[in-house]
């Protein structure tokens, strides 16, 4: 493992068992390292295993075999509680469908990770307000998701991902549900986040989105087929 590597994957495989004797090899052996401050795109056609890889990097799932280290922590050995804790502290998620809680205001949505981190109310309110201002939603804090546009929702999601100051921001097709103009705005926010020192992993199947990154990893049939740095 290269010193300074944020994420290190070694021989990571993922096998899903569907019924008896039926196995799907979603990942067949991934070796990769991600350094802090990188902006990486993971590309590949559907069925290539990019979602599986994203879930493993996001600590939502553990590899069947192989080693996954995140800032020196052995994620592949963790139980559900430890995974929840590491997601809370080190991962910021941005989803294609935003995944905001529909009945809560923007502010409460952004606060949520801090609630699970046990941060007291005054401190987390302040942090959540700051994060929302940073994504340009200082005047929309008390709005619920159904009162916000798609772009605004995604910005709330980005604020929520940033609030715990995570080691890595995972964006899964963040522009997939947005029109192209709003998509560009979201991509600009991600670029500025990287310039501010954040590490970003973006999963997409669109070439022009992937080009924002300074490194593109292409997957095919559960293996890395191409790994280019710009």
């Amino acid at each position: 493992m290269t010193p300074g590597a944020l994420i290190s994957l070694k021989g990571v495989t993922k096998v899903y068992e569907i019924g008896e004797d039926q196995k799907v090899h979603a990942l067949r052996g991934i070796d990769a390292e991600i350094t802090a401050g990188d902006y990486i795109s993971i590309m590949g056609p559907s069925g290539s295993g990019k979602s599986t890889l994203m879930n493993i990097i996001g600590c939502l799932d553990t590899p069947t075999e192989g080693i996954y280290r995140l800032e020196g922590e052995m994620v592949h050995e963790m139980d559900d509680n430890q995974l929840a804790s590491i997601r809370n502290r080190k991962i910021g998620f941005v989803f294609q469908t935003f995944n905001l809680l529909p009945r809560s205001t923007a502010l409460r949505n952004v606060e949520l990770p801090l609630i699970y981190a046990g941060v007291p109310v005054d401190e987390r309110r302040e942090k959540a307000e700051d994060a929302l201002k940073k994504v340009g939603l200082g005047d929309r804090m008390d709005h619920k998701p159904n009162e916000l546009s798609g772009g605004q929702c995604q910005r709330v999601a980005i604020a929520r991902a940033l609030i715990t100051n995570p080691s890595i921001i995972l964006a899964d097709e963040p522009t997939g549900n947005l029109d192209s103009k709003t998509g560009v705005e979201i991509m600009q926010i991600l670029v500025s986040l990287q310039e501010a020192g954040n590490t970003i992993v973006l999963v997409t199947h669109e070439q022009y989105i992937a080009e924002h990154a300074n490194r593109v990893i292409k997957l095919l049939d559960g293996l890395i087929s191409d790994d280019t740095s710009n």
């Binding site: 996001g58 509680n81 929840a84 997601r87 998620f93 809680l101 990770p113 699970y116 981190a117």
Partner: peptide, 16 residues
Amino acid sequence: TKEIGVRKALGATPKT
């Protein structure tokens, strides 16, 4: 279910 998924992704433990 979806809400539970979101909460878990953001760090809610099974106990929570």
